[in-house]
Amino acid sequence: MGSPCKLHLYLTQKQANTVPQAALDCVFALEKKYSRYQSDSITSIINRSAGSGQCVRVDSETAALLDYANDAFEQSDGLFDITSGVLRKIWDFKSGILPSQETINQTLTLIGWQKIRWHNPYIELPEDMELDFGGYVKEYAADTLATFCMDNGVTHGLIDLGGDIRVIGPHLDGKPWKIGIRNPDNPEKALAHVESTGGGVATSGNYERCMVVDGHRYGHVFNPLTGWPVQGLASVTVQAEHCLIAGTLSTITMLKGRPGGGEWLQDMGLPNLIIEEP
């Protein structure tokens, strides 16, 4: 099941003939390129090469995404880490059983962006390590789509890729878009609304999947340094010029947890909404 995605665009008759289809093609192309499930995606090609001693030469877009991941890793003191996807394998939310500390420790040896050899445009992964662009490509896709629409003369619209939002411009009458922020207690209901006439809005939540063991709640956002789910925050929403930036900041804030996350985010001086866990 994928995330529900919607495009709200005000188009001229001429734009309507071409822009929507081309916009969808543009997003599907990105998904195909970075999906872990497509065996011919660049993600799969890089991951398959892990431990082979061979490096993979990547295209300029992928290189820019890897550079971005490197910067986010450094700025978050190692919390934003695109190699942390392997933790999903040991945390089985359906089982209701915690992985052993030994298993976690073993998995942690396969995590760490600093272990990757990245010399633009060549990347080389140690054995069994994996990259996952999933943590930020959807946000990047929202920005890409917005850029594409703007290049084609679209000036009013909102792009919603499963909750990662990028506003191109206000409604036709100049009114801002109202974007609901989910109540972690009741995600079908909006807890608050933010208004936007342009820019990105992204939310990172720890409530979508979790398990309760011995009265303790374990969410699906993992700290790549400890291998344990982060604690303290239920959801972080950030508004920034680009959806990618909003998404990265909300993710890092969520990973920093409480205390620390909220303070770090306030320093950015961007509009945000943090919902703490009780």
Binding site: M1, G2, S3, P4, C5, K6, L7, H8, L9, Y10, L11, T12, Q13, A16, P20, L24, V27, F28, E31, Y34, S35, R36, Y37, G85, R88, D132, F133, G134, G135, V137, K138, A141, L161, G162, G163, L172, E208, R209, H220
Partner: peptide
């Protein structure tokens, strides 16, 4: 939604002017 990147479009709203 899944944590990782996966997108499916449905009900795209397109307003024509």
């Amino acid at each position: 939604s899944e944590y990782f990147f996966s997108i499916r479009f449905y009900g795209g709203v397109i307003i024509l002017l």
